[in-house]
Amino acid sequence: MNKKLHIDWTRCDGRGLCTELLPAVLGRDDWGYPVVRHPRNGDGTNATIGPDEAQAARDAVKLCPKLALVLQA
């Protein structure tokens, strides 16, 4: 089952730890903030996470220094 990785922009400070853990899912913009590489219906705030990336996504949620990431069903 795919999950959604939600970025809380009010918290994220753009240091990019998540983009290192999930290089296939998240790129970085001009200012360092994560960019959803394959946005669904143009949604640039919720990245789709497949089974292969599930563990890395859970790590990103745990390690994000700003608690800006949430994994949702």
Binding site: W9, G14, D29, W31, Y33
Partner: peptide, 12 residues
Amino acid sequence: RQCGPCVFGLPA
């Protein structure tokens, strides 16, 4: 002034 893409993108 909360969300990076808005804070930096709009002035750009």
